[in-house]
Design a protein around this nucleic acid. Structure first.
Length: 424
RNA sequence: AGAGGAGUGGCAGAGCGGUCGAAUGCACUGGUCUUGAAAACCAGCGUACCGCGAGGUACCGGGGGUUCGAAUCCCUCCUCCUCUGCCA
C-alpha cells in the first residue's frame, strides 16, 4: 500500500512511475483518494469538536451530581443527547470514508524503482547478466518428465490418484535429491547470516493483507473456509508477517530470515500445454529469504541477495541469467524484481527459479512495520524477499542438464547431502 | 472439546462507573554529583489522527452494546493459564 503522504506530496511523480507499469487508472484513483482523505479530515475535525464538547458536558454532569444538583444535570443531559446523535452520524460516515479510502488504496500497485526498465510484458525484461554455457547433451536427451519415469523418481500419476493434478509424489532418489537440496540451501543461507525459521503453512486473513496477497491475489490461494485460513503461496507471507505491528530498534536491523516450506498455489487460469512436468505445480517446496532493512540500505541488500542466489546456482553448476523485470511484468507489491532463470537444456527453455524483490515501504505500510529514526520519529522500514531456491525447476534442470547414458550425475556440492552421486 | 480463571503502557502490576491515557516498581533516555563508573537525587519516557500553534480526539486483547459518562457493567469473538476429555 502506497503512503498517503506520498500520494499527496508527489502525485505527479507517482502517476508517472505507475505509468511505467502500465497502470492506467493511477491519476483517477489518486484524485479519489485525495478527495476522500480531505473528507476524512474535515469529518474527523467536526466529530472531534462534538466529542470534545460532549466530554466537557459529561464532566460537568459528574460535578453537578456530586454536588447533588440533579435538576441542572438533567438539563444539560439534553444537550449531550443531541451531541451524541450528531456525532453518531459523523462517526458512521467517518468509518465508511475510511473503508472506501482503504479499498482504493488496495487497488494501487507499488511504484517501480527508477532503474526498472520500461516495458509492457515479459518480452521487455532486461537481461542484466548471463552465466555458464549450455551443456552438450547426447542426441537422445529427453525432458525431465521422461527422465523421472525412466528412473521412477517422481510420480505424477500417483499424485493424481491421491490428490489431483499438480501434486506429485517424489520417490526414492527423487525424494532424497529434493531433501538434499533443501538442506543444502538452508545450510548455505545460515552460513550467509540468515536466521532459520519454520513458520506455519497456513495464515489468517490479516496476514494475507499484510504482505499484499489479499485482496489482489484472492483466488490464487487455497482457502480453508472453516477457519478462514489460507495455505501459504510462499514462506514470505508468514515470515514477513512475524513483523506485523512491530517497531524495531535501529540496532536490530537488518533482519535476515530463511525458511523452508511447501508452497501452495491454485494457479487458476494459468495452466496450459507449456507447463508440463515440474514446470508448474499446485504444491512445491521452496527455501525463502526475507530481509528487513533501513530504507537507506535496501537496494544494497537487494543486490546482495541477487548475488547470493547467483552463487547458489553457480555452485550447482547451472547455466542461468538474471532479468531486471520491466514495469509491466512487475508483481503488484514489488518496487523492483530480479528473476533468476536457469536454462533447461532438454526443453531448450529458460525456467524461473528465483525472484528477488524489494518492496520498499509497500508491505511495511500495511504491516505497520516501523523503526524509530534519528529524528525520534516513526518511519516505515523496507522489506525484501527472494527464493533461494524454488525446488521443482531446479530439480528439473539438474535432471535434464546432467543426464548421461549411464544416468543422472549429481552436482558435487550436494553429494554429501544426497549420499549418492548418480541416479541410474 | 467441556468446566473454571485471566487478558491494562517495553516488562511487572494497581485501578473495577466520573477528576484515568491510566498509580507504583523495574527497564530505558537526559541531567546533577564523581577522575571515571556505580549508587543516590531530579526530569523525561506509548501509538495514531486533526490542528500553524495552543490544544483536541481515539486507543486498557478484537468487535458490538448499556450510560450524560466505561479500563471498570452486559453480549460476542480471540488468546493464555488450570482441571477433565481426546490425540500426533
Amino acid at each position: 500500500m502506497l503512503e498517503l503522504n506520498q500520494l499527496r506530496n508527489n502525485r505527479e511523480g507517482i502517476v508517472k512511475s505507475l505509468n511505467k507499469r502500465r497502470f492506467a487508472q493511477a491519476k483517477e484513483l489518486i484524485d479519489q483518494i485525495i478527495q476522500l482523505d480531505d473528507d476524512r479530515k474535515s469529518t474527523q475535525s467536526k466529530n472531534d469538536e462534538l466529542l470534545a464538547e460532549s466530554n466537557q458536558i459529561s464532566k460537568q454532569i459528574g460535578a453537578l451530581m456530586k454536588e447533588g444538583k440533579k435538576e441542572e444535570a438533567e438539563k444539560i443531559k439534553i444537550r449531550s443527547a443531541a451531541l451524541k446523535a450528531e456525532s453518531k452520524v459523523l462517526s458512521e460516515s467517518l468509518v465508511s470514508i475510511e473503508e472506501e479510502l482503504k479499498q482504493i488504496l488496495y487497488k494501487i500497485p507499488n511504484t517501480p524503482n527508477d532503474s526498472v526498465p520500461d516495458g509492457a510484458t515479459s518480452e521487455d525484461n532486461e537481461v542484466v547478466y548471463e552465466h555458464g554455457s549450455t551443456p552438450q547433451l547426447a542426441p537422445d536427451a529427453v525432458p525431465h518428465w521422461d527422465l523421472i519415469k525412466k528412473y521412477d523418481i517422481i510420480d505424477f500419476d500417483l499424485g493424481n490418484k491421491v490428490t489431483g493434478a499438480g501434486f506429485p509424489f517424489y520417490k526414492g532418489k527423487g525424494a532424497r535429491l529434493q531433501r538434499a537440496l533443501v538442506n543444502f540451501f538452508l545450510d548455505e543461507a545460515i552460513k550467509a547470516g540468515y536466521v532459520e525459521v519454520q513458520p506455519p503453512i497456513m495464515i489468517n486473513e490479516e496476514s494475507g493483507y499484510g504482505t499484499g496477497q489479499l485482496p489482489d491475489k484472492d483466488g490464487q490461494m487455497y482457502h480453508v473456509t472453516e477457519e478462514n485460513y489460507f495455505l501459504i503461496p510462499t514462506a514470505e507471507v508468514p515470515i514477513t508477517n512475524m513483523y506485523r505491528d512491530v517497531i524495531l530498534e535501529s540496532k536490530e536491523l537488518p533482519v535476515k530470515h530463511v525458511g523452508f516450506t511447501p508452497c501452495f498455489r491454485r494457479e487458476a487460469g494459468s495452466w496450459g500445454a507449456h507447463v508440463r512436468g515440474l514446470n508448474r505445480l499446485h504444491q512445491f517446496d521452496k527455501v525463502e529469504l526475507v530481509q528487513i532493512h533501513h530504507p537507506d540500505n535496501s537496494y544494497k541488500a537487494l543486490k546482495e541477495m541477487c548475488e547470493y542466489v547467483q552463487g547458489l546456482l553457480e555452485k550447482l553448476g547451472l547455466q542461468y541469467r538474471v532479468l531486471n523485470l520491466c514495469g509491466g511484468d512487475l508483481g503488484f507489491t514489488a518496487a523492483q524484481t530480479f528473476d533468476m532463470e536457469v536454462f533447461s537444456a532438454a526443453q531448450q527453455k529458460w525456467l524461473e527459479v528465483s525472484s528477488v524483490s524489494n518492496f520498499e515501504t509497500f508491505q511495511a505500510n500495511r504491516l505497520k512495520l516501523r523503526y524509530r529514526g534519528e529524528d525520534k520519529k516513526m518511519h516505515l522500514l523496507h522489506t525484501l524477499n527472494g527464493s533461494a531456491l524454488a525446488l521443482p525447476r531446479i530439480v528439473a534442470s539438474i535432471l535434464e542438464n546432467n543426464q548421461t547414458p549411464d544416468g543422472i550425475k549429481m552436482p558435487e556440492v550436494i553429494v554429501p547431502y544426497t549420499g549418492f552421486d548418480m541416479i541410474s
